[in-house]
Amino acid sequence: MAATTEMLDRARGARAGSARRSLIEDRVFYFMTLISAVLVVALLVGVIVSLIIGSWPALSTFGLSFVWTERWSPVKEIFGALAPIYGTIVTSLIAMIIGIPVSFGIAIFLTEICPQPLRRPIGVAIELLAGIPSIIYGLWGFFVLAPFLQSTVQPFLIGTLGNLPVIGVLFGGAPYGIGLFTAGIVLAIMVLPFITSITRDVFQTVPVLLRESAYGMGMTTWEVVRHIVIPYTRVGLVGGIMLGLGRALGETMAVTFVIGNSHNISASLIAPATTISSTIANEFTEATGDLYTSSLIALGLILFVITFAVLALAKLMLGRTEIA
């Protein structure tokens, strides 16, 4: 009898010991996960702080006028961000003007028209565009697209639209091949898969009941898309566009190849220009002097603020449904 009690006690003790041990292990594991999650937040804070500290010399020298000064003269150490900001915005706008309708078209095709067996392969093919790294787009844009535009499309634009009053200035000058227009087209191709995949996903959230009632009332496929699907998914669509815009604004290598690196603001859309990211990519390692480096980091800070705002808006609109 005594032996049995003793054994029971020992077993109880062992159980308590193992319970205590697993409690400690649980705590350790919990803190490891917590620290990792905090690290993600700390990274973003670190990025912001380092950008602000790095750009301080430039911002304290030039003040806020840094943002609207066009002059960029490394020799005289006068730096202004206007030309890169202008280039970033214009190239992204061109990308959106071309990219949004095409992405919507692909999404409509994939959800409404495409024969079932082809849906997956075509969808995957479009998504593969997103996998191609930006430097490859740059290479292709520089060696294939730019010479093609230079020899065919741009002379045509200059010869026709260039002669019109008012909008003529947008297509003035010589066909360089590289410039805002070419960068905009490359960016449009790059944002296609992002906008398309989100558009397709939100299109699929439309309840079948709604869709079928519309068809039952005799609406054509286009009318269903136009009057049922698009109004139902409006917020998600804008979110997808913002996400694509965020990508376009921050894209670096593809643009660096085809933008032409000119710090002049020209009215012509086909003229060489520069963007924030391509200025940093081109000049950072060659920047001599603290003020020059600091001005480039200040450009980075401006880019970060703009993309942060755009991406945050995109996230709010998409909720937590889509993978960014």
């Binding site: 993600v40 937040v41 973003l44 990025v47 950008l51 921050g250 894209e251 880019l303 970060f304 945050a312």
Partner: peptide, 24 residues
């Protein structure tokens, strides 16, 4: 907050990460 920030980092321009690592 952490989920939101992670999604922002997911799409943030990679050149900014380059600048950050350069400074640290």
């Amino acid at each position: 907050v952490a989920k939101f920030i992670n999604d922002i980092l997911l799409s943030a321009p990679s050149i900014i990460i380059g600048l950050f690592v350069y400074t640290i």
